[in-house]
Amino acid sequence: MDLIVREVSHRYGELRALEAVSLAVRAGETLALIGPSGCGKSTLLGIMGGLLQPSEGEVLTSGPLPEGCLNPFTYIFQDFALLPWRTVEGNVSLALEHHGLGAGERAERVASALALCGLAEFAHAFPKQLSGGMRQRVGIARAIVVRPALLFLDEPLSALDAQTRELLMEDLLAIWARERTTSIYVTHNLQEAVRLADRICVLSRRPGRVKEIVGVEVPREERANAEHARALAELQSRLWDLIRDEAAVADREMQNA
């Protein structure tokens, strides 16, 4: 499913968070959203998925829903947002329980999502018993179990250590290769953006505007290969040049000023 953002602006009271943002996400692609901190990335993501009402502008979709889709706009959260009183299985099943599936089909869907995320043997564990990486895998399983049309990820890996991040990136790539879910991926981490995205949308500092949209030419499957390391590093430093000055200014701004 395509997602079209048209002239979206957003204000929190007096504070202008987004200004006339327009962009289109194409079905099947992964779009990374980067920009200095506080530039409105999370705000934009919330507006895109219908969790936040924009002050101005509109968000539209076009194209068919994927087969078996239960929740078209689905989020994966930075802080995982798991219910601590539910087991891994229960957390994933939460997303299905109000859809009136039979108990059998629900259990089947949950089991296959858990298997896909390498969680099968943790089905009955509580979140507190899991490592950060495993917790986010539960968040990912909960998202894919509803077969989303659009997947919104708000810094999904930034609460994790570098090694876990590396492993989870591979998991995400494998899942995208299988499901081809259209995804919007907010990150601070340029390396993540360059590894995971088909296109990278750079936002300016607050109020956030689209500064540039950069395509990543190297096919996703080949990005781990040594021959592309140089091209990707160059892309990364180009992105850094784009946001460096903005980030420096944003860093000196008072919060909520």
């Binding site: 219910l83 009183w85 329980e97 509803v146």
Partner: peptide, 27 residues
């Protein structure tokens, strides 16, 4: 609040958010 937002993002009806998220969380 983020748990409530999570519930909304998965389309849980308001009554389910109360029953499955708010009340157990307040227990």
């Amino acid at each position: 609040r983020n748990l409530i937002r999570m519930g909304q993002s998965f389309g849980l009806p308001a009554a389910m958010i109360v029953w499955k998220i708010l009340l157990p969380g307040a227990l």
